[in-house]
Each structure stands twice: as structure tokens, then as C-alpha cells.
Design a binder for these strands. Structure first.
Lengths: 185, 185
DNA sequence: CCGAGCATGTAAGCTGTTACATGATTAG
DNA sequence: CTAATCATGTAACAGCTTACATGCTCGG
């Protein structure tokens, strides 16, 4: 049920489905993502529920853009969501399932390779978030606490992303060391 | 697609759907979970694919138990999964979406309340994992590196869980401090 | 006797993914 | 001319949740 609410958050300024997809793929992807085929019907439903309105405007390229913006009822629905308490649905980590059963296979080199790949994956994500942070720093010399009220909370999610990736990387590093000292020394 | 593989991992020893549900709810829930209504059909499919076999045995209470165990093909399918590389499907964090748009609402006390609730949530999860760890420590005096080969990897997922919860808690603590010093000082 | 735990499942519905379908403009 | 980007969607399918359905046994 969260996609509807996140879309409400995004359309504080008028945006098209295509615009929203690009935001997911750039700045929002560390905590949410969605395919266009999911975004378009979701936006339609917001309009049907009177939480958003549409306006068609001609585009430079391609067909008309449909710009969605939230209604007062939409803003209220968003605020209500913020008051329902933290949305902490349990998470499925496939890679932890793999580690849990890693002992089934006796090839310790494969285990090392697994953790090295995982570490590389999180390093890449970490670097991407650092690049986003560098952009913010360049725009605001008093980053992070000199940010405006809206940006202050948005930066907190970036901070969370950076912390979580570091935590994954640290676990990988430590696991690699433990496997090495158990089987190679 | 991971549930099938995780079930294959679990049925190294013969287990019923009901048994498996209990394992998810106790020791496995920090990285995976599933409902009985999802587990039963999934086990049937493993049998249809010749990755598992069933044996009905009478139960003390209630109807016969159906004990599932994996075939050689099932063991191979599990090992193949371990060799496909880390299963790192991107994760959706509803609570980060809420923080991202927290600025929509001007009530700073509500923001503090939100983070305090979130912190309490992760503290509870952390305490649960610490209890699991205490059980392991009681059973094995040389915990964690004196564990057997299978347990060694299983403990790694517990270590991951503890690290990740700590990371969430630290972020909450830090965010609470930042909100306080921004709006209350 | 009643509720909790044991033990099995089916069905409807929601969410999300992958594949398919269309068509304009612009850069190479 | 061709590929990429812009811009909209639909349809089929897979995965997961919630609700429903059945029946036994044991403790209070």
C-alpha cells in the first residue's frame, strides 16, 4: 500500500509518470522503486480517489505529458500516512538465505567468491550514494544541517542509505576474514 | 523465486509444512518468512519437480504429518542456487519513504515520535536476536568460531542481523539528536 | 465444554514483474 | 536510416496476503 503514498509525496509539484520513474531511478532508488507499468495505473487510481488531479500538456518530444498533482485530500492522505507510525514491513534477504545454507556445499573458495561479489555490489551502491551526497555538498556549503526543512529530512534518508551500505560492507569484510582464518591458516 | 530454494535448504532433514512455518517464525525470521498458505503449495511443487519427496506419518495430535525431504536433484538445485551469485534484489523501505516526505508536515513532535517508535521497533528485534545468540553461546563455549561447519555459516546470518539492527538503531538515535538540536535548542 | 495448539489445505485478491504495443523526435 | 530518448499504456503472469474451511487432541 505504500506506492500510492510515495506517489502522493512526489507530486507535491506536478509530475508525469515518466518524470516519476526517473526520480525513482536516480535519487529515490535507495529506498523505493517501481516500474512504469505500475506507476501509470497507480496514478490513475489516485485521480479516481480524488487524491490527485491530471493536466495534459504538450511535450517537446513524443505524446502529451500528463502532469499529476495532489489535491488537498491527497496532501491530507499523505500526512495521515506519516501519522500511522513507521512502515516497517519485514524484509526478505535472499543472500542471507544463501549464506544460511552455504555449508551444504563444501567448496570454501565458492563461499569466498560469494562474499567478495556481495561486497563489490554494496561498494558500488555506496559509491552511488556518495556521488549523490557530493552533489548536495556542492550546492549547499553548510551541508547537512544548514539544509532547508524539507531537504533536512530527505538528507536523513541519504544518511540512512550510507550507513546501511557501510554496515553490509563491514559484515562482508568481516565474514571474508573469518572464512580465511578458518580454512586457510 | 527464492522461497523454493530456501525450502530446499530447510528440508535437509525431513520436515512438515507446519514445522517449517515454526522455523520461519523463530530462527529464520530475520531474513525470511512465509505464510502456511504459501508453504504448502510450494512444497507440493518441489515434489512435482522431483526436488523433494513426501512421507506421511501419523501425528500425536491432529492429522497425519507430511514430512518432506530433498532428493539428490534437490540438493543439486540448492547448490546451483549458491553458485548463481548473491541474491540481492533491491529492498523497499516504507519508513524511509515516510522520512523523505516528513517535511510535508510541520509538527516536529510528530517527527520525534516517529523516530522514537522506529528505534523501539529495532531495539525489540535486536533483543530477540541477542536472545538467539545467548542460546548458541550456552550450547557452545567456543562460540562463534568454534562452531561446526554448518553452524559457522548460519551464525554469520545472525551476526548480519545484529549488525543491521544496530545500524538502524544508530541512525534513529542520531536522527533524534539532530531533530532536537535543530528545533529545540 | 471450550479454547489453544497441531495439521492440512483452497480461494480470492492485491502487488509487482515481464513482455508487448504504439508513436513522435532527435542525434549520429 | 537507425538507435536512443520521450511518452503513453495493456496483458499475462508470478508472488504473497488474507480470509476461509476442516478436524483432531489436550489442558483447564
Amino acid at each position: 500500500m505504500s506506492l500510492q503514498h510515495i506517489l502522493l509525496g512526489i507530486i507535491a509539484e506536478p509530475k508525469s509518470g515518466y518524470d516519476i520513474k526517473q526520480e525513482f531511478d536516480s535519487s529515490l532508488k535507495h529506498f523505493w522503486f517501481a516500474e512504469l507499468s505500475q506507476i501509470y495505473p497507480a496514478l490513475k487510481k489516485l485521480v479516481a480517489d480524488d487524491l490527485a488531479r491530471v493536466e495534459g500538456v504538450p511535450s517537446d518530444k513524443g505524446p502529451d505529458k500528463k502532469l499529476y498533482s495532489r489535491t488537498d485530500a491527497g496532501t491530507q492522505a499523505l500526512i495521515d500516512w506519516l501519522h500511522t507510525g513507521p512502515a516497517t514491513s519485514p524484509v526478505r534477504h535472499g543472500f542471507l538465505g544463501q549464506v544460511f545454507f552455504m555449508g551444504t556445499q563444501k567448496d570454501r573458495e565458492a563461499a569466498l567468491k560469494f562474499f567478495k561479489e556481495l561486497k563489490a555490489h554494496y561498494q558500488a551502491r555506496y559509491a552511488a550514494l556518495q556521488a549523490v551526497e557530493a552533489g548536495w555538498k556542492a550546492q549547499c556549503p553548510t551541508y547537512p544541517d544548514g539544509l532547508g526543512d524539507d531537504d533536512f529530512f530527505m538528507q536523513m534518508t541519504l544518511d540512512a542509505g550510507l550507513r546501511f551500505q557501510r554496515s553490509y560492507m563491514d559484515w562482508c569484510t568481516n565474514s571474508i576474514d573469518r572464512i580465511k582464518s578458518r580454512y586457510h591458516d
